[in-house]
């Protein structure tokens, strides 16, 4: 019965016969590499089958594991995010410590270079009013601080101490509207007074119209004011308006970045001009 059925399906029979013949031929023929064709073809076909099965299983496995993993991924994500935040904070702390160490190293270098009696102080507060450019440092009269002491940093002049308390002191920054310092153009030795604008810039007043001043000149303290020791950097000349008056209008870009001040040095040694002034005041 089955044989009769097959006989009525010659196409099926042909397929079987062809496959049988191919198998028989393959069993006898070797490939160019010397391996039997049957072995190569069988292995190739089986390998493809294995590849398909493996990819199917892998796909299902991936889908399943992906689904299962998704169930726990939210908690894991939250934990990882918290960990990342903690690490970011820690990184910032480390960076801050490194920056602080660098700042302190520069301060120490300045202290040694300046050969002045100084004390390091940390800025603990900024100005309470935007109209005034002052900061508060963490050292006061108990540390030997007095009014009109110069405050410097590795970059240059910061300002002067205007109000010492026992354990803290207020420092008027050089860029404050009421601040001023005796200044000198380093290159030409032209003198003047560096005053604050209250905006973050400085102006150098009383520079003679005949003085040799140009943009890029370094402005340093002259020391004649009795507060700031001589030779400390104030800034660089930004622009010079020679105009028609008696004096030049000189704009100075401060050397100190006041927005990122953290540590400063307070100069404890009185300047010679101050000593002279105090001696003159004494009866």
């Amino acid at each position: 019965m089955a044989l009769a059925d097959i006989k009525h399906r010659p196409g099926l029979l042909l397929g079987a016969a062809v496959v049988l013949h191919v198998v028989i031929i393959s069993a006898q023929v070797n490939t160019a590499s010397g391996l039997p064709v049957l072995q190569v073809v069988t292995f190739g076909a089986f390998a493809e089958l294995q590849r398909m099965v493996t990819s199917g299983v892998t796909g299902v496995q991936g889908l399943w594991s992906g689904y299962v993993d998704l169930r726990g991924v939210k908690d894991e994500n939250t934990a990882l995010r918290q960990e990342l935040q903690a690490l970011q904070i820690r990184l910032q702390e480390e960076r801050a410590l490194a920056q602080r160490a660098e700042d302190l190293r520069q301060l120490l270098e300045l202290r040694q270079r300046a050969e002045l009696d100084t004390t390091a102080a940390e800025i603990i507060a900024a100005s309470a009013s935007p109209e005034f450019r002052t900061v508060t440092i963490d050292k006061g009269s108990t540390d030997g601080l007095q009014a009109d002491m110069a405050v410097i940093s590795p970059a240059g002049v910061v300002g002067r101490l205007i109000l010492p308390s026992r354990r803290a002191a207020k420092v008027q920054l050089l860029i404050d509207r009421n601040a001023a310092a005796g200044a000198i153009i380093e290159r030409s030795r032209a003198q003047g007074v560096a005053v604050g604008f209250g905006t973050g810039e400085l102006r150098m007043d009383y520079v003679s119209a005949t003085a040799d001043v140009k943009a890029g000149d370094l402005v340093i303290t002259s020391g004649i004011d009795g507060i700031y020791p001589k030779g400390f950097v104030i800034g660089t000349v930004d622009s010079v308006d020679k105009g028609t008056g008696t004096y030049h209008e000189v704009r100075v870009r401060p050397a100190v970045d006041f927005s990122r001040l953290e540590e400063v040095l307070v100069v404890l040694t009185p300047s010679p001009a101050r000593d002279a002034a105090e001696a003159a005041d004494r009866p």
Binding site: P10, L14, V18, H21, V22, I24, I25, Q28, V29
Partner: peptide
């Protein structure tokens, strides 16, 4: 090679049929 002639004649037999 055993099967080459067999395959050829199988096809011929089928097609002729």
């Amino acid at each position: 090679i055993m099967g080459v002639g067999g395959l050829a004649k199988t096809l011929v037999g089928y097609l002729a049929g």
